[in-house]
Computed example of a mutant assay.
Amino acid sequence: MDAYKRVFVSGIAAPVLSPPNPVRRSGFELATVVEKLEWAAADVLAVTLRAADGRELPRWRPGAHVDVFLPSGRQRQYSLCGDPLDRGRYRIAVRLIPEGEGGSREVHEGLWVGDRVRIRGPRNAFTLVDAPSYLFVAGGIGITPILPMVKAAGDRGRLVYAGRSRESMPFLDELPDADIRPDDEVGPPDVAAIIARAEPGAAVYVCGPPAMLAAAQRCRFELDPTGSLHTERFSAPPVVDGRAFDLTLARTGRSVRVGADETALTAVRRVLPDVNYSCRQGFCGTCKVGVRAGAVDHRDRLLTHAERADRMLLCVSRAAGDALVLDL
């Protein structure tokens, strides 16, 4: 699952349910080894990683993800879907996307038990808040961040899990109490009707395909005012109201044109493929760079007012005029 994160939260967010552990913007750099590969569904491969040096792995909370650096150099983000109490291993799950950019195919066809894999993290932008009750709605591979949440919530949580068919839905054997709704048996889920059944004060978590997330967000104003809605998507949002502009990379002396429908990060990576990034949605801060000249159209959800005077996030922010000069 390529887990590029976009998180939407409305309502009241109480302190996190899981043990305190500060979210890190840059995360840990870790060398890991593939310990196990197993099929979680017809086209979903579960990958278990352990630390290459045998040490305990960093703690994480339900909803967290790691950046995975594949042997080809591709960087992908995957939700942790194992047991947060197990410090010896991390588990991720990757659905094969034949028409994708090649990351999932590389995992499915190129990773073997014993291979070394560099990761960064964990980080969490889909935190499980404390609430009197929970409603979890997952679609397909969207079960991965929600699976540890369901287990942490225990009797306070209820899961509705949808997918194309049972064969395509990973981890069904770990969810004996879930409300399973395969499309080929009961039809596509009515997200609005499902969310309408949330108890007063419930925290509602939704993760799945874009149509499911859009339906959930349309329901946010209909929730009980004491509740909260949390959604996560696994693809970068399209550029809205963009216009082309020029970037000058001061330290390297390079220039690049940013198209109206692409991000500054995409353009910069054409000339600096190793530039740091992670979420591609404006919340983690990995792609923060200095701005030497030019006005910025800030579209992130992270930088402070003071930081916006001379910083920007490449993944979402743009030039407010025709050009920017960056400290790259």
Rank of each mutant, 00 (worst) to 15 (best):
D130G: 15
D130M: 13
A131E: 08
A131T: 13
P132A: 13
P132C: 07
P132V: 12
S133G: 13
S133P: 11
S133H: 06
Y134F: 15
L135R: 11
V137D: 07
V137L: 15
A138M: 08
G139I: 14
G140N: 09
G142C: 06
T144D: 02
P145F: 11
P145A: 14
P145K: 10
I146N: 08
I146T: 10
P148M: 15
P148N: 13
P148R: 14
M149R: 14
V150L: 09
A152V: 04
A153P: 03
A153Q: 03
A153G: 08
A153E: 04
G154K: 01
G157S: 11
R158Q: 15
R158M: 09
Y161H: 07
A162L: 10
G163W: 02
G163T: 03
E167D: 09
P170L: 13
F171M: 07
L172D: 12
D173C: 07
L175P: 02
P176V: 13
D177V: 04
I180W: 06
R181K: 00
R181I: 00
R181F: 00
D184P: 04
V186S: 04
G187F: 04
G187M: 02
P188G: 01
P188Q: 01
P189G: 09
P189F: 09
P189M: 05
D190W: 13
D190C: 12
I194V: 14
I194K: 03
I194R: 05
A196T: 00
R197N: 02
E199C: 04
E199H: 06
P200D: 04
G201F: 12
G201Y: 06
A202F: 02
A202Q: 04
A203D: 06
V206A: 05
V206C: 03
C207H: 05
G208L: 09
A211M: 05
A211V: 07
L213G: 11
A214E: 05
A215Y: 08
A215E: 12
A216R: 14
C219P: 01
C219N: 02
C219H: 04
R220T: 10
R220F: 11
R220A: 14
R220V: 08
R220E: 15
F221H: 15
F221C: 10
L223N: 11
L223V: 15
D224H: 07
P225D: 07
G227Y: 06
G227F: 10
S228G: 03
L229K: 13
H230M: 07
T231M: 09
E232D: 01
R233N: 05
R233F: 08
